[in-house]
């Protein structure tokens, strides 16, 4: 399995971070739990936005909802305050409630000394993986223990892509879908994106801007989720804008297209008000100036686009759906990119 970059294909500007993953943003870790059973291939992916030793974990967040796609818990606080303080967990839609409960218990077990509002509300995003999984079976088989497993597995270096975690039951462009990730470094800051590559019509895939493939089976659930992390100090409104720019990358790859039902992009900064001493009436936070935002916006777009493609490349074959074939088109795309220079 090759990543897009290893095939000699570049997306956009700026260089990726060391892992070319969302974990290149320092402090961010990703963990998966895979659930496999008869007629069931699903899982949970947890994005943990802070290192384990951070006590006061309030971070800034911004949302971009595609066609009103706001199916997440923690919406009230994210929308009104622009903050969150929980792992972001991607889970199949039928078990959002169970995952929410597991995160509450996780928070309480972890931090008995902290107030109940720390780590509250849990941020759980429901993902439609009915291309592979019957909701009733998912509901029956996925447990709170799977949530704890994903959190315990969280790693700050390499991110397993493809069929891992929530990627198990995803489909895109008529191929097996999955989890994808990529990152970009612009100036002093690193921005990384993780995408649940799910949706997009057969034939809508664009690789490096080129439409080369007719695609496999017709269309399954057409909803996606993307998470953007940055170590740039951005305040909530700026993160809303960053989320909106990342979705451009998803559109360039074809994941957000004319037939998309809904999608959600969450963007957070690992700076913000983590570990603030709350003695005075005010807290000081850093905010990037307006002109400094645009390289970050572009970073998010390029990383998002590459994450989609790497997620497809990492997906494995299944009986139901093939993985994206890796013959022919890499050479053609390389040639076209060469011509364009």
């Amino acid at each position: 399995m090759s990543r897009l970059r290893a095939l000699g294909i570049n997306i956009g500007d700026y260089l990726p971070g060391r892992q070319n993953a969302i974990t290149d943003v320092r402090g961010v870790s990703v963990g998966h739990a895979d659930i496999r059973a008869a007629n069931l291939r699903t899982g949970i992916t947890a994005v943990v936005p802070y290192a384990p030793d951070i006590a006061e974990r309030k971070l800034f967040i911004g949302r971009f909802a595609v066609d009103g796609g706001d199916a997440m818990s923690g919406l009230g606080v994210a929308e009104d305050f622009g903050t969150f303080s929980s792992p972001i967990v991607l889970a199949p839609a039928p078990v959002v409630g169970r995952v929410y409960e597991a995160l509450i218990r996780y928070g309480l077990a972890r931090d008995p000394g902290l107030g109940t509002e720390t780590g509250w509300p849990p941020v759980v995003v429901g993902v439609d993986d009915t291309a592979y999984n019957e909701p009733a079976l998912t509901y029956e088989q996925l447990t709170q223990a799977h949530v704890h497993e994903a959190l315990a597995n969280a790693r700050a270096d390499k991110v397993v892509m493809g069929d891992a975690g929530i990627g198990g039951g995803l489909q895109a462009f008529g191929y097996k879908g999955g989890v994808g990730t990529a990152s970009r470094m612009a100036g002093d800051y690193t921005t990384g994106v993780l995408v649940a590559v799910n949706g997009g019509r057969a034939g809508a895939l664009r690789i490096g801007g080129y439409s080369l493939l007719a695609g496999g089976e017709p269309d399954g659930p057409d909803t996606f989720v993307a998470i953007v992390a940055t170590d740039a100090p951005l305040i909530p409104r700026q993160l809303e804008r960053l989320a909106g720019r990342a979705v451009l990358g998803l559109a360039t790859a074809g994941l957000w297209g004319p037939y998309t039902r809904e999608g959600l992009v969450l963007a957070f900064s690992t700076t913000g008000i983590v570990q603030q001493e709350r003695q005075g009436p005010t807290i000081d936070v850093l905010s990037v100036d307006e002109e400094g935002l645009y390289p970050l916006f572009a970073s998010a777009a390029f990383a998002a686009e590459e994450a989609v493609l790497d997620g497809l490349l990492a997906a494995g074959e299944t009986e139901r759906l093939k993985a994206l074939p890796q013959q022919g088109w890499p050479e053609a795309v390389r040639a076209m990119q060469q011509d364009a220079r």
Partner: peptide, 12 residues
């Protein structure tokens, strides 16, 4: 000023 990050205050 040249783009940078500036400190801003926010009320608790």
């Amino acid at each position: 000023e040249t783009p940078a990050a500036h400190s801003v205050g926010m009320l608790t």
